[in-house]
Simulated scan of single mutants.
Amino acid sequence: MALRPPSQRVPGKQTGVDVLGHELAEEMAISLGRAGRRAEQALVRLREHQGTAEERVVLLKAAAESVHAYFIQRELCGMRRHDEVIRHYGIPREVLVRLGAK
C-alpha cells in the first residue's frame, strides 16, 4: 500500500508530509550547528596550542576530523562550496591538506 499526499491542500493546515519535512529540516540545522561548533572549538585549540610537537599533531588530527565532519554535514544540507567557511573560520592550510585539498 502506497501513501499518497492529499490532492487538495487546505490553506493553513499542514499535512503529515509537511510536518515531517519541517522536522527533518530542523534536525539538519541542529546537526549542522553542532558540527560547526565542534570544528570551531578544535580549530581554536589548535591555534592556541603552545605545547609539544606531538601534542600539536594530535590537535591537528582532531581539527581535521571535525572540519571534515562539518563539511560532510554542510554537503548533506546542500551546501557544496566551502570557500566562505574556510575564510570565516580561518581553517589553516595544514588542516585542509589533511582533507585532500591542494
Rank of each mutant, 00 (worst) to 15 (best):
A63S: 09
G33Q: 10
V57M: 07
S66K: 08
G21L: 01
E94I: 14
R80S: 11
K102H: 13
K102S: 12
P5D: 02
H22A: 15
E23P: 02
I91P: 02
L99N: 00
Q41S: 13
L96T: 14
V19F: 14
E65Y: 09
G36T: 11
E40G: 06
D18A: 03
A2V: 14
G33R: 10
A29H: 07
F71N: 00
H68A: 15
R38P: 00
L24Q: 09
A25V: 01
I30D: 05
V44F: 13
E55H: 03
G36C: 04
V19S: 01
G90F: 08
S66A: 14
T15C: 03
A2H: 05
R47F: 09
K102P: 15
I86H: 01
K13I: 14
V97A: 07
K13W: 10
E84Q: 15
A69G: 05
Y89C: 02
Q14W: 14
R45A: 12
A63D: 01
R87Q: 13
M1K: 03
Y70C: 09
L99V: 06
K102E: 15
L96W: 10
E26M: 09
A62L: 07
V57Q: 13
V97I: 09
A39T: 03
V95S: 01
D83T: 15
G90D: 00
R81M: 06
A53E: 12
S31W: 10
P5W: 07
P11T: 03
E23N: 07
A101R: 08
A69T: 15
L43Q: 05
R93M: 04
A69M: 06
Q41C: 04
L3W: 14
E54A: 13
K102I: 03
R98N: 06
R93P: 07
C77M: 02
A39C: 05
P11S: 02
L20E: 02
L24R: 06
Y70Q: 10
D18M: 11
A64P: 03
R87V: 06
E48D: 15
I86W: 08
R74K: 12
H68N: 08
R98I: 09
Q41I: 13
I91R: 00
G21E: 07
Q8Y: 04
R98F: 05
S31F: 08
R98W: 06
